[in-house]
């Protein structure tokens, strides 16, 4: 990549957007919809009687669901500034037309209960030097989502890495 664009991307590292609020509180309808699609029968997610006797004292949402609550609405369109998307776009314009998600991770700190209001921030955490991979030559771009609830408790931290590359011939 031209040194110029790489330097611009390096300068963006640390850039943050948000907090953005989830459009809906954590709720049982979305939990059920999720469990049906995943075929997840965990009674903590669906059986009030079982969940009441558990250490949570009631139903919780599957922890992996955190991002689903924070997805942008299909309508009306909403601009969600995202420094990773901006970095990907800049690389696209610099001739790196391929993109593939390579790694994602979630660490959970606090359960989500129906009624919880979630919000998240996203931060650009790194842009790697140029690497040559099986797919082509490019850069790994990593951002980190931090999800919190209405009490300011961190629910989940989620790093996410994409490779933006010039496809190998």
């Amino acid at each position: 990549m031209s040194q110029d664009v790489y330097e611009k991307l390096q300068a963006m590292v640390g850039e943050e957007a948000g907090p953005f609020e989830a459009p809906n509180a954590v709720n049982e309808a979305m939990i059920r919809h999720w469990c049906e699609a995943m075929e997840d029968g965990n009674p903590l997610y669906s059986d009030e009687e079982y969940a009441k006797k558990s250490k949570y004292g009631g139903v919780i949402a599957p922890p992996q669901m955190v991002q689903a609550y924070c997805m942008p609405p299909l309508w009306p369109k909403k601009e969600m500034p995202d420094p990773q998307a901006k970095a990907v776009q800049m690389m696209h314009e610099a001739g790196y037309h391929g993109v593939v998600a390579t790694t994602t991770s979630q660490e959970y700190f606090h359960p989500m209960r129906p009624g919880d209001r979630l919000s998240y921030k996203i931060q650009l955490v790194s842009v790697s030097p140029e690497k040559t991979t099986r797919l082509g030559t490019g850069h790994f771009i990593t951002s980190e989502y931090t999800y919190i609830n209405q009490n300011g408790e961190v629910v989940c931290i989620q790093p996410f890495t994409v490779l933006k590359f010039k496809p190998a011939m």
């Binding site: 699609a37 995943m38 965990n42 992996q64 998600a101 390579t102 790694t103 660490e107």
Partner: peptide
């Protein structure tokens, strides 16, 4: 990708039972 995460969580707690608590999942795609 979100569904891959959903499937992994389901797979793990199907094995552990509901008392198993997911702390961290790292996924290579």
């Amino acid at each position: 990708i979100l569904s891959t995460g959903g499937f992994i969580g389901k797979y793990l707690t199907d094995w552990s039972g509901p008392e198993g608590e997911l702390k961290k999942i790292t996924i290579r795609l």
